[in-house]
Design a protein around this nucleic acid. Sequence first.
DNA 1: CGCTTATTTAAGCAAATACTTAAATAATAA
DNA 2: TTATTATTTAAGTATTTGCTTAAATAAGCG
Lengths: 123, 123
Amino acid sequence: MKLEITCTRAQADHKQLLNCKSTLNSMESSFKNMTKLLSIAGNDVRLKILFLLNMEQELCPCDIADILDMSIPAISQHLRKIKDAGFIISRREGQTLYYSLVKSETEVLNNIFTTIKSSKKIA
Amino acid sequence: MKLEITCTRAQADHKQLLNCKSTLNSMESSFKNMTKLLSIAGNDVRLKILFLLNMEQELCPCDIADILDMSIPAISQHLRKIKDAGFIISRREGQTLYYSLVKSETEVLNNIFTTIKSSKKIA
DNA sequence: CGCTTATTTAAGCAAATACTTAAATAATAA
DNA sequence: TTATTATTTAAGTATTTGCTTAAATAAGCG
């Protein structure tokens, strides 16, 4: 951790800045994990996929493509990205793959889903 | 809203899919707003900036650049993006600009910050 | 086995991102 | 006014993203 302060502003509270640095430093892996989830969810299509899986328990790529009016490869590539991040899993039933949320990894999303649903009422 | 279902899978519950479509449709603006926030927060640097502003009330670009060990233009461009989205505001004090969170727009982040802080303890 | 269906994967590409460096503003102070 | 400091803006660029189309797997069925 670099400790030098380059800001020459007189008011700069160097102690405060150093404290911020070390706080963030101790949380590095936590930030990495959260950024992973938020960057996955910070896309309109993927947020809707996650929302749908939360609502319907499980869905296949074909269903999602239908609902979102998108091509199946486009959906498949989004699912792959979410799956690679560890937020969904798949189970096969014949030719069909069913995707579902890994609840333990997506608890933060519940609050987000609730907010989406409640702001719907207002707007 | 398109209502055609292209999936030929026998098990596909068309009624369920149509219901999903119309549900998402009624929430479109809500999803748009949430995606805006999550795409802003879904970047390591910006998530840290938001976290820092939550922790310290207000900071100038120079301080943030120091804390995150990044160039001032890089930070300034992130701040601009967050400000354009309406999640932070700035006030000037002489040459210095102080940025702070627009609390009413960033309530969802509180849960995220709490999660970051608590998973720090575990890990 | 071939044929259809469900899905993934790969290749290609336009658009968006996130930096860098250098130049432009803005405010203060000599 | 010129110089200094804080910040923004602009231009350039390498990387990433998110789609498209076409080809490759995988499973079920005649």
